[in-house]
Write a protein that binds this DNA or RNA. Structure first.
Lengths: 290, 290
DNA sequence: CACCATTATTGATAATAATGATCATACAAG
DNA sequence: CTTGTATGATCATTATTATCAATAATGGTG
């Protein structure tokens, strides 16, 4: 009179049989012998007192009851795997430092929250800085991970996603777009956006002047909103106070930019590995639908 | 390198330990020996490489990890039990005849659909008739189950729910409510509503005449809608073309009526048992919120 | 300090599942 | 029709493992 419980191991082989369509193939996949898989299937049928499969020639087919159990099995195993990895995840401890460009800080909070839920025992520190600076810190192992922007096909790190760069101005402004173009830029030398913009203008034979510089986008915002300069941003960085310029503006098209993840030279710690994977998963959206 | 799977048996004892708060109590509940439960708990901790419990004096407490696993365990076991009973349910076969008053046919279709989903191999036949007739048929074992209406506290069968009876007239009509009251009634002698109505009127010293009779509510509808008579219904039988009368109408208040389930005298078949339980569950709503 | 309830531990036994080998069947090719 | 190949079923053996009963250990209680 004990409550009947499924043996999840048996359900897993059932799923394998369904996936591969054959007992032998399932055995190979699960690293069992063929006879074991055969008997496991039998055992399931005995326990439930139902025939789950039938044989049409040498092809194996499931009965309606088999199909039904299969559906239950997938649900149960999914839940089992989630539970298991959750229990393992809570065991992962350590400290971890991630570097991101200041302007991307707004993109990550949900990722951080999710990460903390999955790995509550990991202490995560986030440091902001320019992409160039962050790369150096990663190389010096002062950071475990760094998410940076860079020009297309630059070396180093793994590309997380690519985004188009665009020109933008204040929402209600129509700044003069005659040479020299007034640019609002990040602090000199540190920023990829700046390089890209200057290369594009130079390629188009245009002239420009750096009207304002700042350490971050936040510092540039008032200048641009006031219509005093043009700025370069990605689509995901557009705010309500910015208006994107299209081709008709006469400014040269800007290339795509890459968001890349750099890892410290030493073998990554387990927390670092996990956060890296999470960032990849969460940000992998191909430059988000407009 | 095989995928890690929980042993649901162990999770079940974990839940038992949590519920009872003690290893020995859990052992008693699960019909294990105390040592078995103790070792099962240990086994879980070994497999996961986590300590799930700690001891505060002789009181047992779960660690945060233990609580978390407990949550997972409950979910998994719930799914397991559902899956298991579903697989068993599909095995139940047979034929089954249910009798219901014609007017309740509209209340049951969703129950029948659900029943067929749970027990697809059971052939269900539904026969309509008056309550009095259905009770006789059940006694004669011509029906396995019968859902009937009856006056309060009548003997026989199990009460499923109680509902208030009310007077109703056509939605736009104002029939004469002076004696004798024109009643629209089911065929004479067969219907509980009729008995109730006549008792109530007699008790109030009112006079009445049976203006129309029919085998079912459907037959009475046009008469009542036309404003030619007053009818007695339950709240759940009100249609858009009927208007309930309240106390201000001057008609006497009507008592509650009972919906009761009668079972054939022989031991009920498994399908009959199941359908009976399902009807009880689904209709148990205490005369549905107004 | 002794006693009671509860839990952990140990060794013996029984149950059970995986294995490897063998047998049976179906299909395809010669 | 026969042979070859692939697949699944069956069986005895082996190894693992869970369960039990008995006992030791622990901590609270009178």
């Amino acid at each position: 009179m004990r409550a009947p419980t499924f043996d999840l191991t048996l359900l897993r082989t059932l799923v394998a049989i369904a996936d591969t369509g054959s007992v032998t193939a399932a055995a190979k996949r699960l690293a069992y012998t063929q006879s074991t898989v055969s008997m496991q299937l039998q055992r399931l049928e005995t326990q439930l007192d139902v025939s789950l499969h039938e044989r049409a020639g040498r092809r194996l087919r499931f009965t309606p009851e088999g199909d039904r159990l299969l559906a239950h099995a997938r649900r149960l195993l999914a839940l089992n795997d989630d539970a298991w990895s959750d229990m393992q995840a809570r065991q992962i401890t350590g400290d971890l430092t991630l570097g991101i460009p200041e302007d991307y800080a707004s993109l990550l909070p949900s990722v951080f929250a999710y990460f903390h839920q999955l790995y509550p025992a990991v202490g995560l520190t986030v440091k902001c800085g320019t992409s160039a600076h962050l790369v150096e810190q990663v190389k010096a192992a002062e950071l475990d991970l760094a998410l940076v922007t860079r020009q297309r096909n630059s070396p180093g790190g793994d590309v997380i996603r690519r985004e188009p760069l665009i020109w933008a101005v204040g929402i209600n402004q129509q700044p003069s777009l005659s040479d020299p173009i007034p640019l609002a830029l990040y602090s000199p030398g540190a920023d990829v956006f700046r390089e890209v913009a200057e290369q594009a203008l130079q390629g188009a034979g245009r002239d420009w002047r750096v009207a304002y510089t700042s350490q971050s986008m936040a510092g540039l915002a008032p200048i641009v909103t006031a219509g005093l300069a043009v700025v370069v941003v990605t689509r995901s960085m557009l705010t309500p106070s910015l208006r994107p310029l299209d081709d008709s503006s006469g400014l040269p098209a800007l290339p795509m930019i890459e968001l890349a993840l750099h890892r410290a030279p030493h073998r990554p710690s387990e927390p670092a590995r996990r956060l890296g994977e999470l960032i990849r998963e969460q940000l992998a959206a191909p430059s988000e639908a407009l």
